[in-house]
Design a protein around this nucleic acid. Structure first.
Length: 525
RNA sequence: GCCCCUAUCGUCUAGCGGCUAGGACAGGAGAUUCUCAUUCUUCAAACCGGGGUUCGAUUCCCCGUGGGGGCACCA
């Protein structure tokens, strides 16, 4: 078997505060993580063989970036997963590498096809296309390193297990298979687990992380790689798959940083150079949500939610890209092409970021405002297709179009459309009690209403400007202004104080409807 | 308990030894508009604490403290 050793194309360093103290026993040029035992490890360009090991060769020295996103279909697809996927995707696209989607579905009990589909759908919706992995429709897959679902890779894991068993880096105990650390053994009482455990004196594992800098961690206990039920554990399959799929850069959440020492030992066990690691900061709950890491249960945590609310995926992606990364200047709203161009691992922050739904909402609004009419209309149609009122709204295409375009510059997200435009589609619209109270308390709205009702039949409703001129000249005749009629008319016709210009509402609704509503309101008020 | 990561306005962040510490979201005030929203102007808002190093620390080092993560036959 041949395995490439991947080069690290990214330059290191960046932030001044980055921990780069001490001479890292890592080949900077290759990004190969080396341990201190045995004096050296494989470096690029130096093929080597190890007893029971794997031949390493380096036929192609230049970049070949291969990154993967490896979710488990055991729950909803949330913000954190999406951001991890995004950073992998961005890095792949930035470097002209390959983005792989691998499904870690070894947890039989918790897996579900519905969650699997959700992964494909969410990724697709967000525009993160993958070069290798299962096809987005779930049928078949593409790529030369499959299968891409761990549940189908049993034979590969078995082979790797045998290799470790054969080279003395694994052993069986209590029906499980354990990975064996090299070093002097001793027993000690573990406070955390309240029992005596066997530990191993080993040299620390040094990780040259693209984001964290140099991280040192001690791995001092043998660990299970195959459970007694015969199933391999996460650490094992993760490393085996990354080897088999020739992953060059492992970009994942910081919650895996502590696991990385296990993974590095595993790579050593297989005689394979480890990939470059990049541990990205986590997304934390916003202050209102409480403390800790954002979880699937938190409000606004699910990608699905934004999809259902018809957020613009590019707005969400833009916002997500800014959580833990920035382009280096004051720009925030950026086309994805610019983000791809500017994104790089050393530019990623080291500290966790709190999720801010308000900023996301603002980003969505900014994107929404600049959408061309046809795109906005398409979004509105998609939205209304799922609404109970949808059929009524979309019955008249031209009418619908006109109203949606009236609403576009006013709303923050597409899901506001239903409430924002109700009164255009039904006479049975809700009346905002608070607004009513306020409007009716100011001046003499009843008198204004009566005057308006009397004047409207003679007005020209053909254009906005005609309506405006009509009301204005009429109001001036009474010694009043447009504003004196606007509020009460709006309340009577729309039930609220927010909306497009009243002249547009009048024109679109038509004289008959407007008069009917004004009269009805006058009668009840 | 042990280990690892981290620390600038409420939030996202810029800053890579010398700055009136900048921008954005959110918030306050005002202007414009027929309302609302947008837009514009404007205000308030931060270097966690203590030691070093240095002529000089937000910036580098150490120690605290705070925040986060990990210590499984979960992933």
């Amino acid at each position: 078997m041949l395995l490439k050793v991947f080069l690290n194309p990214g330059n290191h360093g960046g932030k001044g505060s980055r921990n780069t103290a001490g001479p890292p026993p890592v080949n900077r040029r290759t990004g190969v993580v080396m341990s201190r035992f045995g004096g050296g490890f494989a470096t690029a360009g130096t093929g080597f063989d190890r007893a029971g090991g794997i031949l390493l060769t380096d036929p192609s020295p230049m970049s070949n970036v291969r990154v993967r996103f490896a979710p488990s279909p055991t729950g909803f697809f949330h913000i954190g997963s999406a951001r991890t996927a995004l950073f992998n995707w961005l890095y792949a696209r930035h470097s002209g590498g390959t983005f792989i989607l691998r499904i870690e579905d070894t947890d039989q009990a918790r897996n579900s096809e519905a969650f699997l589909k959700l992964i494909y759908d969410s990724m697709t919706w967000l525009g993160m296309d993958w070069d290798e992995g299962p096809n987005p429709n779930g049928v078949g897959e593409r790529g030369a390193f499959g299968p891409y679902r761990q549940s189908q890779r049993g034979a590969i894991y078995e082979k790797y297990k045998q290799q470790l068993l054969a080279n003395g880096r694994a052993y069986e105990k209590d029906g499980a298979v354990w990975f064996k650390l090299l070093g002097e053994r001793y027993r000690v009482f573990d406070d955390h687990r309240k029992k005596e455990v066997e530990k191993v004196k080993t040299a620390p594992v040094v990780i040259d992380d693209q984001i964290r800098g140099r991280v040192e961690r001690q791995e001092d206990e043998d660990f299970v790689i195959f459970r007694s039920d015969g199933n391999p554990v996460f650490h094992f399959v993760n490393v085996v798959d990354d080897i088999e799929m020739k992953i060059s850069h492992v970009i994942r959440g910081e919650d895996h940083l502590s696991n990385t020492s296990k993974h590095v030992r595993l790579y050593e066990g297989f005689g394979v150079a480890a990939p470059v690691f990049a541990h990205i900061p986590l997304i934390l709950k916003s202050p209102e949500m409480g403390q800790g890491k954002m979880s699937k249960r938190d409000k606004g945590a699910l990608i699905e939610e934004y999809q259902q609310r018809h957020f613009l995926p590019e707005a969400l992606v833009n916002y997500l890209s800014l959580l833990g990364w920035n382009p280096g200047d004051d720009r925030e709203k950026m086309p994805i092409a610019d983000i791809i161009k500017l994104f790089d691992l050393p530019g990623v922050n080291q500290s966790n970021a709190k999720f801010d739904g308000k900023k996301l909402a603002n980003m969505n609004m900014v994107y929404l405002l600049e959408q061309p009419a046809d795109r906005f209309l398409a979004l509105a149609r998609e939205f209304f297709a799922k609404q109970p009122s949808g059929t009524a709204v979309m019955a008249n295409e031209a009418y619908c179009r006109e109203i949606m375009l009236l609403a576009q510059p006013k709303i923050k997200s597409v899901d506001e459309l239903a409430a924002y435009t109700v009164y255009f589609f039904t006479d049975d619209f809700p009346v905002d009690a608070k607004v009513k109270e306020k409007v009716m308390a100011k001046g003499d709205p009843k008198a204004r209403l009566a005057e308006l009702i009397a004047a409207i039949p003679a007005m020209d409703f053909s254009t906005d400007t005609a309506v405006e001129a009509g009301i204005k000249s009429f109001a001036e005749g009474k010694g009043l202004g447009f504003g004196d009629y606007q509020a009460v008319a709006r309340l009577a016709v729309t039930g609220t104080n927010a909306g497009p210009s009243i002249t547009a509402i009048f024109r679109v609704l038509g004289k008959d409807k407007v008069l009917a509503r004004l009269n009805k309101f006058a009668a009840s008020a």
